[in-house]
Simulated assay, not measured.
Amino acid sequence: MKIWISLSIILLGLINISAQGVKIDTEKLLGFYETQRYADAAQYLQSIYPDNTQDLKALTQIAYCNMMAGKLSEAEKSYLKVYAIQPDNLPVLFSLTSINSRRGNASQAKSYLQRIIELDSLNFSAYKQMAAYEDTPDSKLKYLKKANTLNPTDPDVAYDLSMVYRELKQYQQAYDILKTAIAADTENFTLQQAQLPLSNQLGKYQEVIETGEKLLKNRADANVMNDLGQAYFYVKDYQKCIDLYKALEVLGIQNEGTLYYMTLSYRELKDYNNAAVYAQKTIDEAISEHTPIYYAALASIYEAKNQYNDAATTYKRGLTFANNNMIYYRLGLLYDLHLKQAKNAVTYYQMYLKNKPDLKKEKEQIEYAKSRIAALTGIK
Score class of each variant (00 low, 15 high):
residue 192 Q to G: 05
residue 60 T to P: 06
residue 325 N to S: 13
residue 351 M to L: 13
residue 279 A to Q: 06
residue 37 R to T: 07
residue 269 L to H: 08
residue 364 E to Y: 07
residue 187 E to T: 05
residue 61 Q to C: 02
residue 192 Q to D: 03
residue 370 K to A: 08
residue 7 L to A: 00
residue 265 S to H: 04
residue 27 E to V: 12
residue 376 L to M: 08
residue 329 Y to L: 15
residue 74 E to M: 11
residue 204 K to E: 13
residue 53 T to Q: 07
residue 318 G to I: 07
residue 311 A to C: 10
residue 243 D to K: 00
residue 163 M to W: 06
residue 28 K to L: 05
residue 171 Y to M: 03
residue 179 K to L: 04
residue 154 D to S: 06
residue 251 L to P: 00
residue 190 T to M: 02
residue 109 A to K: 08
residue 77 K to H: 14
residue 367 E to F: 14
residue 159 Y to T: 01
residue 8 S to W: 11
residue 250 V to N: 10
residue 144 L to C: 05
residue 266 Y to Q: 04
residue 265 S to E: 06
residue 241 C to N: 09
residue 46 Q to I: 02
residue 295 Y to D: 01
residue 255 N to E: 05
residue 308 Y to G: 10
residue 101 S to W: 10
residue 307 Q to V: 11
residue 108 Q to Y: 14
residue 35 T to N: 14
residue 377 T to N: 12
residue 239 Q to V: 06
residue 252 G to M: 12
residue 82 V to Q: 10
residue 124 F to V: 03
residue 275 A to S: 11
residue 50 P to W: 00
residue 252 G to A: 14
residue 301 I to T: 05
residue 300 S to W: 10
residue 182 I to P: 00
residue 307 Q to P: 13
residue 3 I to D: 08
residue 121 S to C: 04
residue 198 L to E: 01
residue 89 N to C: 03
residue 37 R to Y: 00
residue 353 L to W: 09
residue 200 N to F: 01
residue 106 A to P: 00
residue 356 K to L: 14
residue 264 L to S: 15
residue 262 M to W: 07
residue 66 N to D: 09
residue 25 D to H: 06
residue 144 L to Y: 13
residue 190 T to E: 08
residue 227 D to H: 02
residue 81 K to D: 13
residue 194 A to P: 08
residue 166 R to I: 01
residue 127 Y to Q: 04
residue 228 L to T: 13
residue 57 K to C: 00
residue 234 Y to W: 06
residue 329 Y to C: 10
residue 19 A to C: 05
residue 95 S to T: 07
residue 364 E to V: 12
residue 253 I to P: 07
residue 101 S to N: 15
residue 309 N to S: 12
residue 89 N to S: 09
residue 373 I to F: 05
residue 254 Q to P: 07
residue 261 Y to R: 11
residue 369 A to G: 08
residue 79 Y to K: 11
